[in-house]
């Protein structure tokens, strides 16, 4: 039986990455690089997967290797920009993103990454222009649409954000980011029940994802201030801890540690009730 080639290992790694199993993908990519240390695509994919995990140091190591091999690759440059963006080094992030755009002016994703960098630098006009260009160049790409949609939402351009969210929904209705965007837009437009559906859809994909929980809590807060507070207190460990500290002067400190531990259980119970699946009538 022959040994797997670097190419086949990379293909398998991509499948794992797509399934969200980044650790397995990284193992395979390292195996591919062990077989062919200078394999450009393996370096790029390894860097990108580390970025998915938020591990900036190994990501930049892998991408640095790729950049040495292919200094004029737009893909490598835009990934480097993302890496610097994750680190908070906005000067280098901007330089790399601009270089990526220069190398691939027709690449919508590079424009979107430049837009994200400019957004973080509070260059709103520049960010909006870049994000719009990104979405216009890659009309069927959920990444470009989701980032434009969230930008417009933050800039309070709700109607336009809703149009972008609808477009994203047509392109990739079951993409996690698209679901969240549509939920946030629905909430901003006062459609709380719809937003709740999207929050639950997102939670059915990633049960403990911070952003999905944030959306559901926001829906609860929209429905009732007290309900929102109750959900927030139970879903957030830091808030629970603050509650314990605040209770010390009141002399009921002995009750609150119980709540501190129990809060998570309460939250999970509340979530499980929300996530109830469809039941059919008995007569059917």
């Amino acid at each position: 039986m022959s040994l797997p080639t670097a190419e086949s290992l990379i293909r398998q790694a991509l499948i794992f990455r797509q399934a969200g199993e980044n650790a397995k993908a990284i193992d395979l990519l390292k195996e591919a690089l062990a077989a062919e240390p200078e394999h450009l695509n393996a370096q790029i994919q390894l860097g990108a997967t580390y970025l998915d995990q938020g591990k900036g140091v190994p990501a930049m190591e892998a991408l640095g290797g790729a950049a040495r091999q292919a200094p004029s690759s737009g893909v490598v440059r835009r990934l480097l920009a993302l890496g610097y963006l994750q680190r908070g080094d906005l000067v280098r992030a901007k330089a790399e993103a601009e270089e990526a755009v220069r190398l691939g002016p027709g690449d919508g994703i590079s424009h979107t990454i430049l837009g994200r960098v400019l957004d973080r630098r509070r260059d709103w006009a520049g960010a909006e222009a870049a994000l719009r260009r990104g979405a216009a160049l890659a009309t069927d790409n959920d990444y470009t649409l989701v980032h434009l949609g969230y930008f417009l939402l933050r800039r309070r351009k709700f109607a336009e954000a809703a149009r972008v969210a609808d477009d994203a929904g047509r392109v990739a209705p079951d993409d996690f980011g698209v679901i969240l965007l549509r939920g946030d837009v629905a909430l901003r437009q006062g459609r709380a029940e719809e937003a709740k559906d999207f929050a639950l859809w997102a939670l059915s994909q990633k049960a403990s994802h911070r952003e999905a929980i944030r959306l559901l809590v926001s829906v609860k807060a929209h429905q009732s201030w007290w309900l929102g507070l109750w959900w927030r207190l139970n879903s957030d460990f830091v808030l629970r801890l603050l509650l314990v500290i605040a209770s010390i002067p009141l002399g009921i400190w002995f009750l609150t540690p119980i709540y501190l531990i129990g809060g998570r259980l309460i939250f999970e119970h509340m979530l499980a009730r929300e996530l109830k699946t469809v039941k059919l009538k008995r007569g059917f």
Binding site: P4, S8, L9, K24
Partner: peptide
Amino acid sequence: GEAAGAAFAYLGDADPAPFE
């Protein structure tokens, strides 16, 4: 579950050794 899905995809494209 997902492991099977990944394994099938694995087998579809790759040499059998890692799939095994």
